[in-house]
Design a protein around this nucleic acid. Structure first.
Length: 1037
RNA sequence: GCCGAAGUGGCGGAAUUGGUAGACGCGCUGGAUUCAAAAUCCAGUUCUCGCAAGGGAGUGUGGGUUCGAUUCCCACCUUCGGUACCA
């Protein structure tokens, strides 16, 4: 029987489906294991071979864990809200509901093609109202809670209101961004709107102000992605930063918990440190600087209060509230100009710019709290409004950017730290002794920091403060295709959440997806949807992409529950995700938000774990391997004629290149002969003017002219003899002017890459070519001419009649013509082969290029595995005798390697181990049933179809998928001899077979007396011999 | 700029705790089989000098630690991911 993947795979897909073999339920008799893939966004382009990498890995691991007796939850769903569908709707008018549904259908087909063991009955889609109902529900809970700093957890806002009513703001242990100071009486006197505003300072979901990318011409807010160099990507219109009312989530309240609990996670150190740095906890001091001749003071945050005596000016963020109040009439104009400039700068640009500083003087002065001196107040875009207090005390001697700023604007630089004891220390190291610093003089930096904070507090001008780089999450989008906010506003603008019974608040259907008036979302165009029965108006912003993806892993546990987002029973059993696999691009965004939501739900008692993802693996990207063809440019043809015709066939005719000296004209023909009066010009037949002028010049000089057109060279490109004969005829003939007009075609000439080296580099344009018509870096010319790109193409082929292409590794994308579709791979090689090859490419966590040509190796392996079971006539032939020692050794080597490597997620080396095992078993012509059956169990997670088929062919009952995993036994691998490498100074010089239990002294003696070694030593005394038992012997001379 | 990762043959990669660098596979070269091709099988394949025996060099670059470094330390270069509204 032959191995026919197409037939076998269809058969087993059907059987698995009929048996519903991947359906999973709570089963308390088995330990649970929850394996999750990162939520895919179903884009219109469909899956390419890079997408399933992580899915294959988790599928192998899921199957492996099932073999080991775990009850495995392995679900898949779709993160379906997002910008691309909305963009598509704007362009084509196709409703996102429709395009998303189509895209999901296509993704599902492509995923099914690879036979993943998902329990599809648990699938969720974020844009499904049955799902986003619960996203809205969580939002309302966030809105209704604040963060209690004493209990370090979320508590109901209703309790906070009670505190306010009883004892005002001072008694409230509530996390807020603004420090409120009011008494119970004052609170009670507040208007409902005032109360609403105050509570927004505490709610975990609140309204605030943020700067957004505003594009006036497009009438919309743009994603950072849509802005390039200060202009909109679509249209190239100017984009400015503009403040806007937005919903926020108070993730900063959870900063400490998010930071501390990282320790409990089995994530890579790299990922943890990225999260740590993102949270960016820094301890320092808040200090107030009084403004000279004013009641105002500026709050600054500094991590280096020790350097306060070096503060020679203050810098405010351009957006700082005080700027307007502080600016003096004389500086109005300068500051206004600077603010206009700052508006055009994106935050990224502002942070990245380190070489050039810009800024403007406000005209105001602050009073240094210790020296009493007046120091100027400047504004500059290197200070960010959202970081710290949005203002800094600038210490030029202690900070590089402050230093650059001081130099540029000639501000004083006061040395405050003597680093002479630390010659290698940079100005940002916390090392040295304080100088020029009043009461801090002589202290070490570390002590000076403490002392300075103490003094600042005593003087009542500030206090120690912890600052986080982490910012509250902007949760508003002025978009259509997202979850509607379940809130509305009354006539006073007071916010009212919907009651739970009114959920889900459905997204209305729309026909026009352009932005609404005045920077509003398209929902603002639907007045009927906007107004509620109470006469309130709804929020028209929608939620961002991370809303739905911040909790989806919980819904999989109980996907169809209509009454709760997840039942207690399901949470109690499944708890949290044991293994999460996805790309590093989610390292800080999604993973931070999901952890935040999970912690909030923990505070509410909905989940029973502090962290959502226990272990996490980052998969590397699969890059594209682009192919390029080389198109001949104008100057190619002249070089071609010389190399392939003139040098070859007319070398003895004295052919030479004409120089300008030979004619008076500013142009000349290309080639002439010493032995006769013919001149040759290579030119496109279309350049008739040029031909006429050359004709005139050449005939005037009394020579004859042969025009060879680029077009005729192109059409006879692989037949240089045709041209040679034409030249010969011309030489021998007597015509004065020979010019054969080509027929009018627009042809292009492409040159095989391996020939391009013969010509100047500027003879060619390098152009992407679809990798699907290139095999082994050789262009399939027949396939190529059938495409639009090569409709009228001619190809200069190499000596082997091949046309080669160059290649480069790039991102896999449509525009680079390097996209490979997994469906095509499955059609050609089968899903088993594709799955295995994708794993074989390299380590799961590293980026690597896809190259289809290597897949043959895996295909060959599968055929060899198959052939182990059959004789040369294709009949199943297996023996049920006792396995030999050698067979067991080969098998157990494989069991050991594969079970260890799967646990380490090193799937590429597993595939190698399988190949070695099958090669070895073939070599000894193993036909042993028990050995081969164990091998099938090992292979089954990687290549389930072939394993299932061979299992059945071996006479076993359905299904290999449900078999327990083979157990490794050390005794089969024991060796009584070890082959030692014998090295001299670390370089291998000989091999020595020694008994495994030989002691070191004897081994040393044997090694030193080896003939290869004595030859090397040649009398040189041996200084030392190092014997590492079981590993190697090193002789030091 | 900042944070994180990765650089090993022609290519993808292996070397698990500092111990034989290049497993396994692709490609290439030669051979067998075949009318021929595909498929299959066998042998070779880091570079370099050499007919060979054998020698030298070699894991991005430069330095260091060590009997011994792809692995540890320092500095640098290049590429990739993220950088808060792509998902």
């Amino acid at each position: 029987m032959e191995y026919t993947p197409g037939f076998i795979e269809a058969k087993w897909k059907q059987k698995w489906k009929e048996a519903d073999i991947y359906k999973v339920e709570i089963d308390r008799s088995k330990p649970k294991y929850y394996i999750l893939d990162m939520f895919p966004y179903p884009s219109g382009a469909g899956l390419h071979v890079g997408h399933p990498l992580g899915y294959i890995a988790t599928d192998i691991f899921s199957r492996f864990k099932r073999h080991q007796g775990y009850n495995v939850l392995h679900p898949m769903g779709f993160d379906a809200f997002g910008l691309p569908a909305e963009q598509y709707a704007i362009q084509t008018g196709v409703m996102p509901q429709i395009s998303t549904e189509q895209n999901i259908k296509r993704y599902r087909e492509q995923l099914d093609n690879l036979s993943f063991s998902y329990d599809w009955s648990r699938s969720v889609t974020t844009s499904d109202p049955a799902y986003y109902r619960w996203t809205q529900w969580i939002f309302i809970r966030l809105y209704e809670h604040y963060f209690n700093t004493k209990e370090n957890k979320a508590k109901p806002v209703s309790e906070l209101i009670e505190v306010f009513e009883k004892s005002g703001s001072e008694q409230a242990a509530a996390f807020s961004t603004i420090e409120d100071h009011f008494t119970a009486q004052q609170w009670k006197a507040f208007s409902p709107k005032q109360k609403d505003d105050v509570l927004m300072h505490y709610r975990l979901a609140y309204k605030g102000q943020a700067f957004v990318n505003w594009c006036e011409e497009l009438g919309t807010v743009l994603a950072n992605d849509e802005v390039k160099d200060g202009l909109s990507e679509r249209g190239g219109y100017p984009v400015v930063q503009r403040p806007m009312e937005q919903w926020f989530l108070r993730i900063t309240a959870y900063a400490d918990r998010l930071l501390n609990d990282l320790k409990t996670l089995e994530w890579t150190d790299a990922l943890k440190s990225m999260q740590e740095n993102w949270i960016g906890k820094s301890e320092g001091a808040q200090v107030f600087f009084k403004i000279k001749d004013s009641e105002e003071s500026i709050e600054i945050f500094t991590t280096r209060p020790d350097t306060i005596f070096g503060a020679s000016f203050i810098v405010l963020a351009p957006e700082h509230d005080l700027v307007e109040k502080l600016v003096t009439p004389e500086q109005q104009h300068t500051v206004k100009n600077y603010l206009d400039y700052a508006k055009t700068r994106s935050e990224r640009e502002r942070i990245s710019e380190t070489k050039q500083v810009t800024g403007a003087f406000t005209g105001a002065y602050a009073v240094h709290p210790f020296t009493g001196e007046s120091i100027p107040v400047w504004i500059s875009d290197y200070v960010l409004k959202d970081y710290g207090a949005g203002a800094i005390m600038a210490v030029p001697a202690g900070d590089l950017r402050d230093h650059a700023f001081a130099e540029k604007f000639s501000l004083p630089i006061i040395e405050i730290i003597d680093r002479s004891a630390h010659p290698k220390a940079t100005i940002e190291d916390k090392l040295g002794t304080m100088i020029n610093s009043g009461f801090l003089n002589g202290l070490e930096v570390k002590d000076a920091i403490k002392m300075a904070i103490g003094e600042i507090a005593t003087k009542g001008i500030g206090k120690a403060k912890v600052n986080f780089r982490l910012r509250d999450a902007n949760f508003s989008r002025q978009r259509y295709w997202g979850e509607p906010f379940p809130v509305c506003y009354d006539e006073d603008g007071i916010c009212h959440p919907l009651s739970d019974t009114d959920l889900p608040l459905m997204l209305p259907e729309l026909e026009d997806f352009r932005p609404g008036a005045g920077s509003q979302s398209p929902l603002a165009r639907v007045p009927a949807w906007q107004s509620t029965r109470e006469g309130y108006r709804r929020e028209t912003d929608t939620m961002p992409g991370f809303a739905g993806s911040s909790w989806y892993f919980l819904r999989y546990m109980d996907a169809c529950n209509p009454d709760e987002l997840v039942s207690h029973e399901a949470i109690d059993y499944w708890q949290n995700v044991d293994l999460y696999v996805g790309g590093t691009e989610h390292a800080v965004g999604h993973l931070m938000y999901a952890r935040f939501w999970h912690k909030f739900l923990f505070d509410l008692g909905i989940v029973n774990t502090q962290e959502p993802f226990r272990k996490l693996i980052n998969q590397g990207m699969i890059q594209g391997r682009s192919n390029f063809v080389f198109r001949a440019k104008e100057n190619f043809f002249e070089e071609y004629l010389k190399i392939n015709v003139l040098d070859k066939y007319f070398a003895d005719s004295g052919v030479y290149r004409l120089t300008e000296d030979e004619y008076d004209e500013e142009f000349c023909a290309d080639w002439a002969f010493k032995s006769n009066d013919l001149v040759i010009e290579v030119v496109s037949w279309k350049l008739e003017d040029k031909i006429e002028r050359i004709k005139g010049a050449v005939l005037k000089a009394g020579k004859r002219l042969l025009i060879i057109t680029n077009e005729e060279l192109t059409m006879s490109i692989n037949h240089p003899l045709v041209i040679a004969e034409k030249i010969r005829t011309a030489i021998d003939g007597s015509e004065n002017f020979i010019f054969d007009k080509s027929e009018e075609i627009d042809s292009q000439l492409y040159v095989s890459y391996n020939l391009t080296g013969n010509y100047s580099a500027d003879c060619f344009s390098k152009i992407h070519v679809d990798v699907n018509i290139v095999h082994n870096d050789y262009l399939d010319i027949d396939a190529a001419v059938a495409t639009r790109q090569f409709e009228n193409a001619y190809f200069l082929i190499d000596d082997n009649k091949q046309f080669s292409c160059s290649w480069e590794v790039e991102k896999m994308s449509k525009s680079k013509y390097n996209v490979v579709n997994p469906d095509d791979m499955v059609a050609a090689y089968g899903a088993d082969c594709f799955r295995m090859y994708e794993m074989f490419l390299g380590p799961i966590d590293q980026a690597k290029p896809w190259d289809t040509k290597g897949i043959d190796g895996v295909a060959k392996f599968l055929r060899r595995l198959w052939s182990l079971f059959f004789d040369e006539n294709g009949k199943i032939q297996l023996s049920d005798t006792e396995p030999t020692r050698e067979e067991l050794k080969i098998l157990h080597q494989c069991i050991k390697k594969v079970s260890e490597e799967v646990e380490r997620f090193s799937f590429n080396t597993c595939v190698s181990a399988f190949m070695i095992c099958v090669n070895d078993l073939r070599r000894i012509e193993c036909r042993n049933l028990s050995v081969l059956k164990d091998l099938l169990k090992l292979v089954s997670p990687f290549a389930p179809h072939i394993a299932e088929e061979l299992w059945e062919q071996s006479g076993e009952a359905f299904s290999v998928t449900l078999q327990p995993y083979p157990v490794f036994d050390e005794k089969y691998l024991k060796e009584d001899h070890i082959e030692y490498p014998v090295c001299i100074n670390g370089k291998k010089r000989a091999l020595l077979l020694l008994p495994a239990d030989m002691d070191k002294a004897d081994a040393e003696k044997q090694a030193v007396s080896l003939p290869e070694i004595t030859k090397w030593l040649d009398g040189t005394p041996v200084k030392k011999v190092i014997v590492v038992s079981g590993k190697m012997i090193n002789i030091v001379i």
